[in-house]
C-alpha cells in the first residue's frame, strides 16, 4: 500500500500527515508510487489533477474514452439501467401502461405483504432452494471428482454430463412433464414398477411436486457446474497429491485435505450463484405445474409473473415490480453479507 504523505505536504488544509488515511480511501492513496522522492513533481501533478474541468478532461483523452464506452453505455442504459429505474418508479405507481399512472406510495408493497400467497411463495422458494442445495450442490462436485479420477474415456463422461445443458430448457421440462405422467403407464412409473415400486403422483400431488421440480432442475443444471469443477480440478497441482500420498493419505484423505481446500474459491462462487439462481426459479414451476397443486409450487418469481400477467386485463404491475425490487434488494444484501463472511477464507 502507498502512503498519503504527499497529500499533507501540498495543498493541505486537511488533516496533518501524521494521521494515516485508511488504505484505499484518500484520493492520493492509489497515486504516487514513490513516497518521499520527487515530492514537488507529484504535488504539482496532483494539483493539476485536482482541477477537473471540461478542457483538461478533453486534453486527457476523455473523448476517446467516451467513444469506446458509448456502445456499452447505450446498450446497458437502454436495455438494463432504464428498465431498472423505471421498475423502481413503477413499484410506487398504479398503472395499466396506457392511462396515466397514479402515485400510490407504499401501497403496492403493503398489498404484497398482505397477500397470503406471498408467504406461501416465500416458503416454497426457500424449500426449493434448500432441496436444491441438499441435492444439487454436492452431486456435481462428487461427479466432477469421480470423473477427474477416471483414466479412460474422460471426454465421453464430460459429454454425457453436459448433454442436459445443451437441450433447450423448455424442451427438457416439457419432456420431463411427459415422463412425470402420474398414471401407471407413465415413463417413470413404468420404470419404478420394474423394481416393484407403486406409481408415484410426481407433480400431481402437493407433497411430491416440489421435489420433482428439484430433481429435474438438478439434472438440467448439474452439467454446467461439473464442467466448472473439472476445469478447476486440473489446476490443482499434482505435487500436492503426491505429497499427500507420501504421507500415506487415503483417497478420502486426498479429497478432504487437498481437493476441497484447493477448490474452495470456486465452491464459494458456485454456492452463491446457486442460491441466487434458486431464489429466482421460474421455468420449472411455470411449465410443470403453473404453481399447483394448490399453490404448492408457486415461487416468488412465478408470483411476480402472476401479479403482472395472468390477470389477462393488464394486472398489478405495481405489485409485480414492488416484489421484484424486494427480491433484488434481498439478493444484493445476501451477496454482500456472503462475500464479507467468506472473504477471509477465499482470499487465503
Amino acid at each position: 500500500m502507498t502512503s498519503t504523505v504527499t497529500r499533507a505536504t501540498t495543498d493541505a488544509p486537511g488533516p496533518p500527515a501524521i494521521v494515516p488515511a485508511a488504505p484505499g480511501r484518500g484520493p492520493a492513496s492509489n497515486r504516487s508510487s514513490a513516497p518521499g522522492s520527487r515530492t514537488d513533481d507529484s504535488a504539482r501533478a496532483l494539483a493539476r489533477r485536482r482541477r477537473h474541468n471540461p478542457i483538461t478532461w478533453v486534453q486527457r483523452g476523455g473523448l476517446t474514452t467516451l467513444l469506446f464506452l458509448l456502445p456499452l453505455l447505450i446498450i446497458f442504459g437502454v436495455f438494463s439501467w432504464t428498465p431498472i429505474v423505471e421498475s423502481v418508479i413503477m413499484s410506487f405507481q398504479k398503472t395499466n401502461l396506457v392511462t396515466a399512472p397514479v402515485f400510490v406510495g407504499w401501497d403496492n408493497f403493503v398489498a404484497v405483504f398482505r397477500d397470503p400467497v406471498f408467504w406461501v411463495a416465500l416458503r416454497n422458494t426457500g424449500y426449493f432452494a434448500a432441496l436444491a442445495l441438499l441435492f444439487g450442490y454436492p452431486i456435481p462436485l462428487v461427479a466432477a471428482v469421480l470423473m477427474s479420477e477416471v483414466r479412460r474415456m474422460k471426454g465421453l463422461y464430460s459429454v454425457l454430463a453436459y448433454l442436459p445443458v445443451v437441450i433447450p430448457p423448455v424442451v427438457s421440462v416439457l419432456l420431463w412433464k411427459i415422463f412425470y405422467d402420474a398414471g401407471p403407464t407413465g415413463v417413470f412409473n413404468t420404470i419404478l414398477s420394474w423394481v416393484g415400486i407403486p406409481p408415484q403422483p410426481w407433480i400431481q400431488d402437493a407433497a411430491t411436486a416440489m421435489p420433482s421440480l428439484v430433481l429435474q432442475a438438478t439434472w438440467a443444471g448439474a452439467g454446467g457446474t461439473i464442467i466448472i469443477y473439472l476445469a478447476a480440478l486440473t489446476s490443482v497441482s499434482p505435487d500436492l497429491y503426491d505429497a499427500a500420498e507420501v504421507d500415506g493419505a487415503s483417497i478420502w484423505g486426498k479429497i478432504w485435505h487437498v481437493t476441497l481446500p484447493q477448490l474452495r474459491g470456486i465452491l464459494f462462487i458456485t454456492l452463491i450463484l446457486q442460491i441466487i439462481a434458486t431464489a429466482q426459479v421460474f421455468l420449472q414451476p411455470f411449465l410443470f405445474t403453473g404453481g399447483g397443486p394448490v399453490n404448492s409450487t408457486t415461487t416468488i418469481l412465478l408470483l411476480i409473473y402472476q401479479y403482472a400477467f395472468t390477470n389477462s386485463l393488464g394486472g398489478a404491475y405495481g405489485q409485480a415490480t414492488a416484489l421484484s425490487i424486494m427480491l433484488a434488494a434481498f439478493l444484493a444484501v445476501l451477496s454482500v453479507v456472503y462475500f464479507r463472511l467468506t472473504s477471509r477464507w477465499s482470499d487465503e
Binding site: N96, L97, V98, F309, T310, N311, S312, L313, G314, Y317
Partner: peptide, 11 residues
C-alpha cells in the same frame, strides 16, 4: 390475443 402480452404490446 393473450392477456400476458396485451398490455405491453399496447404500450
Amino acid at each position: 390475443w393473450t392477456g400476458t402480452t396485451f398490455a405491453a404490446e399496447l404500450a
